[in-house]
Design a protein around this nucleic acid. Structure first.
Lengths: 337, 337
DNA sequence: CTTTGGTACGCACACGTGTGCGCAATTTGC
DNA sequence: GCAAATTGCGCACACGTGTGCGTACCAAAG
């Protein structure tokens, strides 16, 4: 029942297991004929080296751990896709673990990664516990944070330029003629949310539009959250004519709420999002948003790990640019037409 | 640099590593005092047993492999979420691998799973290569197929009742008064597609509506594919008044194509989908569809593996029911109003 | 006191792989 | 033709964990 091992091959080839090991690795210490013979036998027997045994002696597992809050979030799924792609093509396998933003669960995930002796960790969770910092100190395992940052040596990150992208999106709304522009944020989004709101505020300031605290409402990054937050904004005496949302999922809820109020998008209210999820182009109307190169960001995160595995690890902090994608959910405000 | 091992703990506690091993496992061969002392030392040292070493001696890795065509597909992501949930709570870690429907890549994935000595495999790919069958024969690793079936011993499956669900969806359209109902399929969907079309045909037959081959068009499960297929249907001399789509992603494309043609949903054309993706309720209009309990199906797949690990493995073939969710994308045809 | 039984621990091997070193056989050099 | 260099392979150990078996110690029974 146990899988065929290197010793079984050795027996079949009437050599020692050492010779088999060397033959399969193409060592010059083995004659070409013997190498060919052994390889043939190994292939015929369907031999597959045990990764566990190899990790044990080499001290490297060739695996990485990926922690996500929720794989069903399209943004997260896109990132993971990029990570897996880059990992697979470099001989690394990916452990995927949901944290569900549950501290207990997160603790178990980290334990598990420790026991598996992963060579690196990528975290796309929005919340960055001190957990990972202590992990680095104990295990010496490099950690790459995605769209999050933590001031620490050996803590690396791949970030989108939230500020610049949010300025661009808000500026777009201003150029269309909007003056009452709302921000629909994420009360759990921490850093990303803070930066995006800062970009929004900066663009307003540039245009000489006063920042009005009533025009900021907070969801939780989900359509439901966006719906509730949008309801608050619509209840204002002086309604906004445009809303810039923390992400596309929030925008989805906002759009639903707007329609439920009998208003038209973009005629009565312009909506802009952030992420450019795959589905955003298929919405009605298609959503104006900031494109985050999700897969590419995932690949960059994995690439960062690969660099660290190779050379001496200086701190990496990669930054990618968002791209404003203008679609039909934004237009001139009514009164300006 | 290497992690602290059981031997390090043994040295600190001035006992043999065997005693440490037994103490940590709560063996009765070790006195309670020694056990407590060792555990304390182990915890203080931050000891984590090496999963690799343990797998080697136990012959079980406590990992499973999950093969998906594309994790960015919302249906797949939902399933994976369920799998991971159930796996984590039973002490199993999940290797995630994209196949991208690329045979070469799939081959490498299978190789990788063999080397990692996974205890089980779950495949959500639509295409089921003979690869997995031979894998079972070689490794003796149980495989669970999700929404796919393969006649073989030791091949297990979790399936949605495509036929019944599709009958229900089509019947719903018929009851609304539609007679010219199209089927927008997936030319790669194989089994699921075949069954869903069969359900569509069966409902038509029940109602005495002749099956018209022109009213079937095929995409590829993506919005783009749905768009093209819908274009074909709209080009027909005698246009359908309703369309039942293979999945929600196809329906997304179909809806876009319909709007692009200047037609209204559901006034001019009713649209029904399959999956009930999270976003489907947020579309405009909200999509009538068949709900697949994606997370639950993922959990059931993992549960199937757990059962097989436990007892003697008879073949498991679980079947879940779809639930028709009627929303606003379907309505009476115009002429009947 | 000796014998029996039990308790608490260590020795040694196993799992599968990689590798430094030693050694025999062969080839090379003069 | 003999010593030296080279080639080709095996021995033995290491990695970290689990476990069958042996054993020293101690208490209780006879």
């Amino acid at each position: 029942m146990p899988a065929t091992s290197i010793k079984d091959i050795a027996r079949l080839a009437r050599v020692s297991h050492s010779t088999v090991s060397r033959a399969l690795h193409g060592s010059q210490q083995v004659s070409p004929e013997t190498t060919a013979r052994i390889r043939k036998i190994a292939e015929k027997a369907g031999y597959r080296p045990s990764a566990a045994a190899r990790s044990l002696v080499k001290g490297r597992s060739n695996t990485i751990g990926v922690v996500v809050t929720n794989i069903a979030d399209p943004f997260v799924a896109g990132v993971v896709s990029g990570i897996e792609d880059m990992a697979e093509s470099h001989g690394y396998s990916v452990f995927l673990a949901n944290s569900n933003a549950d501290p207990d669960r997160e603790l178990r995930v980290v334990r598990s990664f420790e026991e598996r002796r992963v060579d690196g960790i990528i975290v796309t969770s929005s919340r960055v516990g001190a957990l990972y910092v202590s992990l680095i100190e104990r295990m010496g395992v490099p950690v790459v944070l995605l769209n999050n940052q933590h001031p620490s040596e050996f803590m690396h990150s791949v970030l989108i330029d939230n500020l610049a992208a949010s300025v661009a999106a808000t500026r777009h709304l201003i150029q269309l003629g909007h003056r009452r522009i709302a921000y629909l944020g994420d009360r759990f989004g921490h850093q990303s949310d803070t930066e995006r709101r800062a970009g929004y505020a900066k663009a307003l300031e540039e245009a000489g539009i006063p920042y009005c605290v009533d025009l900021a409402a907070y969801g939780d990054g989900t359509p439901e959250g966006g719906e509730h937050a949008m309801a608050q904004l619509l209840a204002l005496a002086n309604r906004p004519t445009a809303v810039f949302c923390y992400n596309d999922m929030s925008a989805l809820g906002a759009m639903r709420q707007i329609r439920a109020s009998g208003l038209q998008i973009p005629d009565d209210l312009s909506v802009a999002g952030f992420d450019d999820l795959y589905i955003s182009q298929y919405l009605e109307p298609p959503l104006t948003t900031v494109r985050q190169p999700m897969r590419q960001m995932g690949r960059m995160a994995m690439e960062t790990l690969l660099h660290i595995f190779d050379g001496p690890h200086s701190t990496h902090n990669l930054r990618v640019e968002g791209q404003l994608i203008v679609r039909q959910s934004t237009a001139h405000p009514k009164e300006n037409r």
